[in-house]
Amino acid sequence: MTTSGDGGDLDPQLDAFSVDVRDLLQRSVANLYSHLVTRPTGRAVRLAIEAQLQEISPPALSLVDLSSVSVLDYSCADEVVAKLLLQGAEGSPPRGGTVYFIFQGLKAHHREPILEVLNRHELAAVVQAVGRSEPFQLMGVRSSLEEEVWSAIESRGRIPGARIPDAFPEGRQREVVDGLARRGLLFRHPLRGDIHALSHLARRFE
């Protein structure tokens, strides 16, 4: 992680790349399916995403676009969504740096398998329904306070480190901010302590 050196705009410098899952599937599995089904297929897609992540410097923001996936089964959702998130989760083997994920292009039929695997692994993810104007949402396992704090950060986009006590005056709220950052559901600038909604970072790369 580096920052710009002149002390001006110290926005985080995350590498970002956008992954169209259909493109990956076509390249890595060599079958032109828009159906993300079976565990081996999901594993191949995840490995392809991880191979791309190896090529960029962490921390990184990964946008995984599911808008072209017409069928997503539970096995594939587990291999792609859950295992990508698990490898960055607390207590898991280090990936070599933090990667933040946003799962974009969600359609109604993606929600159930994704929610199921998130619940099963006690994970949460930042997601956005198909359509650029759709709001970003937190999906999966979270408390009402986590939802409340995450939504507050999401609505503001970025909160400078010095203003966090004003934004979250209660100690338990600030603990939740820490927890959300550890879970990769928001980004905390390592030097300034600013907190960023992942959607705020994603928009910077549009």
């Binding site: 159906h35 089904v37 079976t38 565990r39 017409s70 069928v71 997503l72 089964d73 539970y74 096995s75 109604a108 039929h109 398998p113």
Partner: peptide, 20 residues
């Protein structure tokens, strides 16, 4: 109309039961 996707997911999972 959404049932076709749900049916496809069932079909996929039930076939994977054989493979796994």
């Amino acid at each position: 109309p959404s049932a076709v996707v749900q049916f496809s997911v069932i079909l996929s999972e039930v076939c994977q039961n054989i493979l796994e």
